[in-house]
C-alpha cells in the first residue's frame, strides 16, 4: 500500500546456505516508532538492510511508499531512509568532518542546529570524533544520518552498546523525532525498551513475521500463541535489575 513506509511482500533472504528470512510479509506504517523484535538470528538487522538495499532479497519485493526499492537508485533511497547502526563507526577526522561526509555543503549554522537536535554541545564540532564517549558517538551518528535530511530513520539496536543513561537519552531523542514527524524503524532485542518506545510492533520468528500490530496486540497475541508468550517471558537483564530495585 502506498501509505506504508516500507512493505515486505514474500521476501526471502539467505546468507549463503543459511536462510534468514523465508517468507516475510510485513507492513511498516509511516508514522511513529515501529519496533522490530525477535530472538537473535531472526533477521531483524537483515530486514533493515533489505529496506535500504545494503542487501538484496533472494525472493519477493520490498517497497518504500509503495515503490519497489529495486527501481530507486540506492543512494537516493538511502538518503530518504537514514540508518544508524548498532556499533557507532566514526569516520577519521572531527565531528564536523563526519557530518560533512553526509552533507558536503553543510554550513556552520546547519551543523550547530544538527548538534542541538541530537543533544550534543556545539563546541564538540571540532573535537576528534574518536575522542567522544559511546553515547556521544551514537548521537553523532544520528546527527550524521539526519544531515542528509531523511524522511525516516532505520535504527539497528542503536542503544545496545550504551550505558542506561545514554540509552535513555537515545530513546527520548527518538521519541521527539517521531513526534516531529520522522517515522522510525527500531530494531531491538530489549522488550522493556520496546514497551517504552514502540507505537507499532513487528515480531520476527523463524524468518517470518509472527505478529504485527500495537504493543497491546503483542500482549493479546501472547495469550493465544505460546511461542510469543515464551519469547516475552525471557526477561532481559535490565528489567530484572529494575524489578530488584522495586
Amino acid at each position: 500500500m502506498a501509505d506504508d513506509l516500507i512493505s515486505f511482500e514474500g521476501v526471502g533472504f539467505a546468507y549463503g546456505a543459511t536462510p534468514v528470512l523465508t517468507d516475510l510479509d510485513v507492513r511498516v506504517p509511516a508514522d511513529g516508532i515501529t519496533a522490530v523484535a525477535g530472538p537473535s538470528g531472526s533477521g531483524k538487522s537483515t530486514l533493515l538492510r533489505l529496506a535500504n538495499r545494503l542487501l538484496l532479497p533472494d525472493r519477493g519485493t520490498v517497497r518504500h511508499r509503495g515503490i519497489d526499492v529495486a527501481t530507486i537508485p540506492p543512494p537516493t533511497l538511502r538518503r530518504r531512509l537514514g540508518m544508524v547502526f548498532q556499533r557507532p563507526s566514526p569516520f577519521p577526522g572531527s565531528v564536523r568532518d563526519n557530518l560533512a561526509v553526509a552533507a558536503p555543503d553543510l554550513t556552520d549554522d546547519q551543523a550547530r542546529r544538527l548538534m542541538a537536535r541530537v543533544g550534543l554541545a556545539a563546541d564538540l564540532l571540532d573535537r576528534e570524533a574518536s575522542d567522544l564517549s559511546g553515547g556521544q558517538l551514537q548521537r553523532m551518528c544520528l546527527a550524521r544520518a539526519l544531515a542528509t535530511e531523511p524522511e525516516s530513520l532505520l535504527l539497528d539496536e542503536p542503544s545496545t552498546a550504551l550505558d542506561p543513561a545514554a540509552r535513555h537519552g537515545i530513546e527520548q531523542l527518538a521519541r521527539s523525532l517521531a513526534e516531529a514527524g520522522t517515522p522510525l524503524v527500531w530494531v531491538t532485542h530489549d522488550l522493556e525498551q520496546l514497551r517504552r518506545v514502540a507505537d507499532h510492533v513487528v515480531l520476527l520468528m523463524n524468518g517470518r513475521a509472527r505478529m504485527s500490530g500495537s504493543v497491546a496486540d503483542l500482549d493479546a497475541a501472547a495469550r493465544s500463541d505460546p511461542k510469543i508468550a515464551a519469547f516475552l517471558a525471557e526477561t532481559p537483564p535490565e528489567a530484572r535489575e529494575d524489578a530488584d530495585e522495586r
Binding site: 545494503l54 540508518m83 563507526s89 569516520f91 553526509a102 544520518a145 544531515a147
Partner: peptide, 11 residues
C-alpha cells in the same frame, strides 16, 4: 562498518 555507514548515508 565505516564503508557501510558511508553507503547508508547515500554515498
Amino acid at each position: 562498518d565505516e564503508i557501510e555507514a558511508r553507503l547508508a548515508l547515500g554515498l
